[in-house]
């Protein structure tokens, strides 16, 4: 029975992937891509990777979808019926994608059986971190450097988006609010955020011992913030604001600071003294959650579109 479910899931994923690449309209492709992200999240739960599933649903289905939809609306406004890529361009892209896929398939098939794994080592070192969730231990202790660089990349992406603003609007606020805010949207923006914030805090806290964590919690917070801005209940922040910029870098900055403290306290960059490993990790997670929420929200909000008031 569960085999049937898995096969149906795989068939749906393949069909949606084909549709996304062949859909005529950009918007159709994006909507299908959002559905693809959600189904892929379901697929991750089927192989018991709940942390990945949550992230995939939140980022792949949620934030990326909204980012793409806004970009598409922007492009549509700019040039109606823009130029499409030539046949050669499409063919080259298709061949390159197929080559990457085939290469990955060959690599997966070439694994020895049983596949090499570090899972026992990761589980054995878990008590030293004070955490209960091995995924969080990998993200914030064993491979903390990767996580740190990932957050820095997010901020670089935001700088890239901000750079699209014309000179005169630099430092101004992005524009999310539609000219006319529908009443149901305003109602939702008043009702949902208390629950959303509660869920985000819960996800961040529970991430130490169960599936959940900074990225998922940050995405939920960002969604609540975007909802409030979309409904016009809170003005879009000016991108030159000091508090805003501090929030953006607070998480990575704390991460780096604690990383350097590791030289003094535990003998290496990003290593934690065992007695206070858990409080340190939870502190980094809390700061990172806020920074991720601000970064993702501003990424979706886009470059400044209103001149700075100051």
């Amino acid at each position: 029975m569960s085999l049937l479910l898995d096969l149906a899931l795989v068939a749906w994923l393949l069909a949606l992937a084909l549709y996304v690449t062949s859909a005529r309209g950009d918007r159709d492709a994006i909507v299908a891509f959002i559905a693809f992200g959600l189904l892929l999240g379901l697929g991750w739960t089927r192989i018991a990777a709940l942390d990945v599933a949550l992230t995939e649903a939140a980022i792949g289905g949620g934030v990326t979808g909204m980012l793409l939809l806004r970009a598409e609306a922007h492009l549509r406004k700019r040039k109606p019926g823009g130029p499409s890529k030539g046949v050669v361009g499409k063919a080259v892209t298709a061949v390159a994608c197929v080559m990457v896929t085939v290469g990955l398939m060959l690599v997966v098939l070439a694994f020895p059986s049983p596949a090499p794994t570090l899972a026992p080592a990761a589980a054995a070192a878990l008590p030293a971190t004070g955490l209960g969730n091995p995924v969080t231990a990998v993200l914030l202790a064993y491979r903390a450097l990767d996580t740190l660089l990932e957050k820095v990349v997010l901020i670089l992406a935001l700088i890239g988006v901000w750079s699209l603003a014309p000179d005169g609007l630099w430092g101004g606020a992005p524009r999310l609010r539609p000219a006319l805010v529908p009443e149901p949207l305003a109602y939702l923006a008043q009702m949902l955020p208390p629950f959303g914030v509660l869920i985000a805090v819960y996800m961040c806290w529970v991430g130490a011992d169960a599936p959940g964590g900074t990225f998922q919690a940050g995405t939920v917070l960002a969604a609540m913030w975007l909802l409030v801005m979309l409904a016009g209940l809170s003005p879009e922040p000016e991108t030159r604001g000091k508090a805003l910029r501090l929030t953006l870098i607070a998480g990575p900055a704390l991460f780096v600071a604690i990383g350097f403290l590791g030289f003094a306290m535990a003998g290496g960059f990003l290593s934690y003294p065992e007695s206070i490993a858990k409080p340190l990790i939870v502190g980094i997670e809390a700061a990172l959650t806020l920074s991720i929420a601000a970064t993702l929200g501003l990424l979706v909000a886009g470059p400044a579109q209103m001149a700075s008031g100051r």
Binding site: P182, E183, P184, L185, Y187, L188, M191, L192
Partner: peptide, 9 residues
């Protein structure tokens, strides 16, 4: 809540 709002919108 979300379904009702989406339908209304």
């Amino acid at each position: 809540l979300s379904a009702a709002t989406a339908s209304q919108l």
